[in-house]
Design a protein around this nucleic acid. Sequence first.
DNA 1: AGTATGACTCATT
DNA 2: AAATGAGCCATAC
Length: 123
Amino acid sequence: MAAGQKKFPVNDPSKNYSFFQDVWDVVRQIPKGRVTTYGAIARYLGTGSSARMVGWAMNNSFIIKPAVPAQRVVNRNGMLTGKMHFNPPERMQQLLEKEGMIIQNDTIQNFIDHFWDPATELS
DNA sequence: AGTATGACTCATT
DNA sequence: AAATGAGCCATAC
């Protein structure tokens, strides 16, 4: 990893660290046209975290700035499980299509080709 | 303070 | 291959 670019802090049980902040920081690193999964983020932040909490962080991501590209986070099948939480729900798919994804039946086509794993990309 | 609830995932049946 | 159960842990009530 390049100098000055530090690895995102993992959860530290000894202090009250903001898990959400970690998640948002990672999500903001997702390059345009790429996507990742809840589980990948959870694993990157430490197995102590669960994918459910990543979803929770996304739910709260709408109220923070800078904005978090929550549309780039889908479940491990490339399915837009969180689209109903967007405003309006169609927005998630529209944003992804605008970034070059092809989506059918709420599922990103060729998902594996667009997958971005923070564990390997950020290391 | 205990229970319920997720934008999830994995192992087992 | 589809359904089920369990683990996950921070909020909400």
